[in-house]
Design a binder for these strands. Structure first.
Lengths: 134, 134
DNA sequence: ATTCCGAATGAGAATCATTGTCAAGTCAGC
DNA sequence: GCTGACTTGACAATGATTCTCATTCGGAAT
């Protein structure tokens, strides 16, 4: 699992299909949903392969992965840089947000308690304007 | 009507046992680990009951629940107020941290994008001083 | 104390996402 | 066209969590 890969994931028909499917979504989708979408589109890709492709792409930093409230892993294409997500808990609409403030704060807190090698997870959930009015 | 601690969880032998087990831990534990601990201590409590008790207590705000990197739910007793966690990824040592800054920031970001009813999850992972020196 | 009823329990089955297995398929380069 | 390493996919296996349902318990009213 150590990345001897030069820069990314070796492109096969299946992996390209998974990547393409993700382009069609704006929000986070589970492996199973992507598998369904591919089947519906006529691209037959095994479920295991979808899981492997998603993990590989997430490892390569080409995807964001987070856990839904139900605890299942969901994926979304993303920009390369570090950021967080503002997710509508009704329709799933997602906005990428950046926060130097937060980054600084977490680093400071960790340092204050003597923790090194710091990483963090931060997701914001809410009801987007459209769903809120509805 | 003079029940001090009843926020909806009826105290039974089993629930008291679960609560007591959590007192013995400083870090996050899975339902299964707690079930094991109870069995080891001679308190026989069904696994389903442990799950139910934990969920009920988490709903009542008496526990913190978060998902380990492996995706399983882990629980820890906690203070009532809103806070986040700084967790050692080696030994699990946990510090509760508060951050008005972060709270303010998330609210601002959400508002800026028209999101209402905002909640968020934030966990910080690192290597604590003791494990770091190791 | 006794009764009564809804809530709680527990043993096991059921569910469901995810991972492992391994034979068959694919592709590059020789 | 052959070889070998990597990839795929059907299916089994795993493992956490939830469901089922007959039984038991708690505690308020009697």
């Amino acid at each position: 699992m150590t990345s001897t890969d030069s820069s990314g994931v070796r492109p096969t028909r299946q992996r390209r299909a998974v990547a393409a499917a993700l382009e069609d979504f704006d929000d986070f989708r589970s492996a199973q949903e992507i598998h369904e979408a591919l089947k519906a589109a006529g691209d037959n890709v095994g479920l295991s392969t979808v899981y492997r492709a998603l993990q590989a792409m997430a490892d390569a930093g080409e995807l964001d992965m987070l856990r839904s409230e139900a605890g299942e892993a969901v994926y979304r294409r993303c920009s390369g840089s570090h950021h967080h997500h503002l997710v509508c808990r009704v329709c799933g609409a997602t906005v990428e947000v950046e926060g130097p403030t937060v980054e600084r704060w977490t680093r400071a807190v960790a340092a204050e308690h003597g923790y090194a090698d710091v990483s963090h997870t931060l997701e914001i959930f809410g009801t987007c304007a459209r769903c809120h009015r509805g």
